[in-house]
């Protein structure tokens, strides 16, 4: 049996402000405000509806090979948090 493929996608309707690598997301209709640190902001940008969680881990691991283990831990946790905060659909 194949593993479940999770493909997270940014929710529509967010206003985005990027500052020094970090991001603030504001969803006026849902009254959601989210602060994403540099790592979370990067992961959120990669949640385009095409990349699976595993794809995002691979992309970031190839960009930051020294942090491979940390990335494998951070990506699912961050996606779970962004989903809980209402910033992601899918998966």
């Amino acid at each position: 049996m194949s593993a479940l493929i999770r493909i997270p996608k940014q929710c529509a309707g967010f206003l985005i402000e990027q500052m020094d690598g970090e991001t603030v997301l504001l969803h006026p209709a849902k009254n959601i405000i989210i602060h994403a640190n540099e790592t979370a902001a990067l992961i959120w940008q990669l949640c385009d509806g095409n990349n699976s969680e595993q794809d995002i881990v691979k992309i970031l691991s190839s960009a930051y090979p020294d942090s491979r283990d940390q990335i494998a831990k951070d990506v699912p946790e961050t996606i779970q948090r962004l989903r809980a905060q209402g910033a992601l659909d899918g998966g």
Binding site: E17, Q18, M19, H35
Partner: peptide, 18 residues
Amino acid sequence: LTRAETLFRLLQHLVNAR
């Protein structure tokens, strides 16, 4: 606070955003 953290907190205290 970083700039983004500051913005995040300011938006939480904005009264008339709508």
